[in-house]
């Protein structure tokens, strides 16, 4: 879809709009039992909740 937007300078984006960086699939966790327990197979989406901000 919008791959072309990925690495561009933030200043080029319009204000007052929401943006989500594009996800690139490379590999899954080798340990799928662990992936099942933490709730994602994508290492880049492994964001433990710390009560403050994401790790």
């Amino acid at each position: 879809m919008q791959d072309h937007l990925f690495n561009e300078n933030c200043d080029d984006f319009s204000v007052a709009m929401a943006y989500v960086p594009w996800q690139y699939f490379d590999r899954m966790f080798d340990d799928l039992d662990k992936a099942y327990r933490i709730g994602t197979v994508f290492p880049e989406l492994d964001k433990p909740f710390t009560g403050r901000r994401c790790v």
């Binding site: 879809m1 996800q23 699939f25 899954m28 799928l32 039992d33 992936a35 099942y36 994602t40 197979v41 994508f42």
Partner: peptide, 22 residues
């Protein structure tokens, strides 16, 4: 459960990346 969880995750990824052959 593990294998289907992998499928759910890959499905949701592929929904928005429909040409990712890997």
């Amino acid at each position: 459960g593990i294998v289907d969880f992998v499928l759910v995750e890959l499905t949701e990824y592929l929904d928005t990346h429909p040409f990712d052959r890997n």
